[in-house]
Design a protein around this nucleic acid. Structure first.
Length: 269
DNA sequence: AACGGCATCAACCGCTGAGTA
DNA sequence: GTACTCAGCGGTTGATGCCGT
């Protein structure tokens, strides 16, 4: 019996069997009980919630249900382009720190982001036959997916607006994440220091210098970038295209392009 | 229409760290 | 300092729906 179970039994003086703890999907009735209880007593003290609300659920289960599903600020529906971009960025910085990443995506839960990463991003790594943490995959993200994604974000914003100085700028007490002009494909090679000063957090993420260091077969028009970018262009509602429906990256990463990308990545070194 | 495989997502599990008596 | 309780995190699993055959 683990610590939690011990504590649960200690708190209630009843065994789990006596409590007949429920598992599995929540019913509407349970949801409304939980909602009513939290509305009155507030969040926290989840074991008490479980015990006093009459729900035959563990405190953990109540907490998870509230945080991941019932909180009023929860945003449901497709992950937007901007959110996708942020997830890619933040994961490149922090790895699987889902809750930390989720703090920068209002209304999204760590669970949702984790699921998104596993189902969408890891799938692409699988198709490219490389690990999500591999240099190959990170390069694919840096040099193809993210610039392309930014392009799409810009395209979907007002066409008459001047060069956006910042697409995304989320700040916490100690850390900030910016997407500035230097990240945009057009200006990627000419970023000034002053521009970079506002996007210092991204210098390890998309560094024009590192692009210039990238192998010619990756940089030039016949290489990696173009193939992948072209593949992107074929699908207006592709994986990172958002908004256009439920289609997946299959349309983008078709066999031919995956093969070509793999060749390019192998030629690197 | 039936079936099987796959993708997605809600929920659970195990562990850890913070707070407190 | 220690034991205990609780909340939170990340990994994993299982149910469900969708899609192709």
């Amino acid at each position: 019996m683990n610590v939690y179970e011990e504590s649960f039994r200690y708190d209630t003086s009843k065994s789990e069997q006596e409590m007949d703890v429920r598992k599995g999907p929540w019913t509407e009735e349970e949801d409304s009980v939980l909602k009513a209880y939290v509305n009155i007593h507030g969040e926290g003290r989840w074991n008490s919630v479980a015990r006093l609300s009459g729900l035959r659920r563990t405190g953990k289960s109540c907490r998870l249900r509230w945080l991941n599903y019932m909180r009023p600020e929860i945003k449901r529906g497709n992950i937007s382009l901007e959110e996708q971009l942020l997830i890619l960025q933040l994961h490149s910085r922090w790895g699987n720190r889902w809750s930390k990443i989720a703090q920068h995506l209002p209304g999204r839960t760590d669970n949702e982001i984790k699921n998104y990463w596993r189902t969408r991003v890891q799938k692409q790594a699988k198709q490219l036959q490389c690990d999500v943490n591999s240099k190959q995959f990170k390069d694919a993200m840096r040099y193809v997916w993210i610039p392309r994604l930014i392009e799409r974000i810009r395209a979907s914003s007002q066409p008459t607006s001047a060069q956006p100085s910042t697409i995304t700028n989320l700040t916490t007490e100690s850390e900030s994440v910016h997407v500035g002009p230097s990240l945009l494909p057009e200006s990627s090679g000419t970023s000034s220091d002053s521009q970079l000063s506002s996007v210092t957090d991204l210098t390890d993420f998309y560094d024009p210098q590192s692009v210039s260091n990238y192998p010619n077969n990756v940089r030039n028009g016949s290489g990696f970038e173009n193939v992948a970018a072209e593949a992107w262009g074929r699908s207006d509602d592709g994986w990172l295209g958002g908004g256009g429906g439920e289609s997946s990256m299959e349309t983008v990463w078709n066999e031919e392009n995956i093969w070509f990308l793999q060749q390019q990545l192998r030629d690197e070194v």
